[in-house]
Design a protein around this nucleic acid. Structure first.
Lengths: 160, 160
DNA sequence: GCTGAAATTATATGTCC
DNA sequence: GGACATATAATTTCAGC
């Protein structure tokens, strides 16, 4: 379903649930100015249509012992499609890789990697990343400070 | 609270709630092999201690009309601390910026920017980013394909 | 600490207007 | 979309291990 006819209620639901995914329906309904029944219906429709892909607990990285975030740029050899797909598959199953994109520019791939510390990153880099097939170059950019943590998507372009 | 004495139950709770932040307590309890009472207590402690920072609905970017993700590297002038703080503050309040870090390497800051399309990015780049104080250089890397979407933090280093 | 059961309260859902 | 009734689920308490 590529399109979805949003109105201002849907937009406010999405904004509220991005900020608090466990907001009780009764509170959500009150916040957006709707009674619980239609609010619940809308949320279900948004879930079933795939607009809401799921819900997630947001953890404090430091608290769970994950002190190091690294943004990794990877250049690869020119691949045939079959090899390229194998590379993407290999990257996407690595737990330490919490996000990965094919990008334009200097690197071919940009990965966000999360590990406990520098020692763990060293192991991951030499033991895993550098052994991926077709890797030509890896550039590691270490996060020194979080300026803005992962935040809600901007929905200002939707009706409302 | 910089440390937290996790055991295997806490780890499994965190893993489960990262995957499904709305998993009913009764189901969560069953999954991790605990009865509902202690399971509920543990979740509450994890929330109160800040290990669980919150919950969020995960949206489908395309479905909500946000077709373009750009990873933006920014180099800045040497700042005094007061100016540096002003820059970080300015970046962190921009809705289009869904994540931002101070990083080592080529750029000083790395931003993840989400907008509807190239036209919107053009406006954002020229109208907002390039006008931030002290910007020396901006490099835009466009996401061509999502290899792995934002995914749960790896907790394999915790007990369990 | 956990289990299990029961009671209470809160929340979600379905039906009908 | 709203109101109301019904069904689910969460939370608390307490006994016993």
């Amino acid at each position: 379903m590529p399109t979805y006819k949003f109105d201002r209620f849907d937009r406010r639901i999405l904004e509220a649930l991005q900020t608090n995914g466990r907001l009780p329906n009764i509170d959500l309904a009150g916040d957006i100015g709707l009674s619980p029944s239609p609010c619940s219906r809308r949320v279900r429709l948004l879930e079933e249509s795939g607009v809401i892909k799921g819900y997630s607990a947001v953890l404090d990285q430091e608290h769970v012992g994950l002190g190091l975030t690294v943004f990794v740029g990877i250049k690869v050899e020119r691949h045939r499609e079959k090899e390229a797909e194998a590379f993407r598959e290999a990257v996407s199953v690595l737990p330490e890789v919490v996000m990965a994109h094919l990008v334009s520019g200097e690197s071919d791939f940009l990965l966000q990697v999360v590990v406990p510390d520098l020692r763990a990153y060293e192991d991951f880099l030499t033991g895993t990343l550098l052994k991926l097939p077709g890797v030509r170059d890896i550039r590691s950019n270490f996060a020194i400070q979080t300026v803005k943590p992962q935040s809600p998507l901007p929905l200002a372009h939707l009706p409302g």
